[in-house]
Computed example of a mutant assay.
Amino acid sequence: MTTLARFSALVYTLFVVEVLFVVAAAPGLVVLLLLAPDGRNVPLFVLCAVPLGPAASAAVYAVHRRGSDLADLHPARTFLRGYRLNVLGVLRVWLPALVVLAVLFVSLVNRTAAGVPGWWFWLLVVLASVILLWSVNAVVISSLYVFRASDVARLAAYFLAHRPGVALGTAGLLLSAGAITVLASEAFVLLPASLFIAALLLVCRPMCADIERRFVA
């Protein structure tokens, strides 16, 4: 019965978090689904991603603090509390990352017109991948812990180098989400968003353990 209760609590939490995540990210997602897949729309794509940062942060917060007791489950309340507590802190690291990614993506999609050499193209791809992985680390850290934005940025970079398994796991999750988006649509990738968050927390567990052991009193 205990195992069944825990599983039921997990399913309920993930369902509620999924719904609230979609609602919180809806302002950007609605516009995103209406945009044509054109390189000239890259700045708009990035702008549509702004609400995803706070929404993902609230989802991370809610899933991380989920309980197993069906009589004491409040995932909606926890999600909203996480959103309220983390929205400003997350935007301080999420917005700069989006700006850098926008510049890189514009260069990548216009590489032919700009005459970008092949080696420079792949350098930009690597740089964009690093920024994306850094931003995921930063969102997780700022969602679960109270640090200054500069400290979040340094910790996110530090763990990219010192916890390569976390970076590798995160890259796998992002590639899976990207593959679903390419093969299906942007809307379909939202369906397992809460499962993605739960998997991300599992991948980031070593990083979180290090932070709690070394940097949290």
Rank of each mutant, 00 (worst) to 15 (best):
M1E: 04
T2E: 14
T3D: 14
A5M: 12
F7H: 10
S8F: 15
A9L: 03
A9I: 00
Y12Q: 13
T13Y: 10
E18K: 06
V19R: 02
V23M: 11
A24M: 07
A24H: 05
P27N: 07
P27D: 09
G28Y: 04
V31W: 05
L33P: 01
L34R: 15
A36I: 06
P37V: 01
G39V: 13
R40V: 04
N41Q: 14
L44E: 03
P51L: 10
G53T: 07
P54L: 09
P54W: 03
A56Y: 05
A59C: 03
Y61I: 05
A62T: 06
A62V: 06
V63E: 13
R66V: 03
G67K: 01
G67V: 01
D69S: 12
A71H: 04
L73H: 10
H74Q: 11
H74D: 14
P75G: 08
R77V: 09
R77M: 09
R77G: 14
L80G: 01
G82V: 02
L85F: 03
N86T: 07
N86A: 12
R92D: 11
R92Q: 15
P96G: 07
P96E: 11
L98W: 01
V99C: 04
V100A: 10
L101R: 02
L101N: 02
L104I: 06
S107T: 05
S107M: 12
L108C: 00
V109H: 04
N110D: 13
R111T: 01
R111S: 10
T112S: 15
T112I: 13
T112V: 15
A113Y: 13
A113D: 14
A113W: 14
A114C: 03
G115V: 07
V116K: 02
G118R: 15
W120R: 13
W120D: 10
L123K: 04
L123V: 05
L124E: 08
V125C: 13
A128D: 14
V130H: 07
L132K: 04
W134G: 02
W134N: 07
A138E: 13
V139D: 08
V140Y: 05
I141K: 04
S142M: 09
S143G: 09
Y145F: 15
R148E: 13
S150D: 15
D151F: 03
V152L: 01
A156K: 02
A157F: 15
A157Q: 08
F159R: 09
A161M: 11
A161Y: 13
H162N: 15
P164C: 10
G169F: 11
T170V: 14
L174M: 01
L175W: 08
I180K: 02
V182S: 07
V182M: 10
L183R: 10
L183V: 08
S185K: 04
L190Y: 00
L191V: 15
L191H: 05
P192T: 02
P192R: 08
A193E: 07
L195R: 03
I197Y: 01
A199W: 11
L201K: 09
C204M: 15
A209I: 02
D210T: 11
E212T: 00
V216M: 11
V216H: 06
A217T: 10
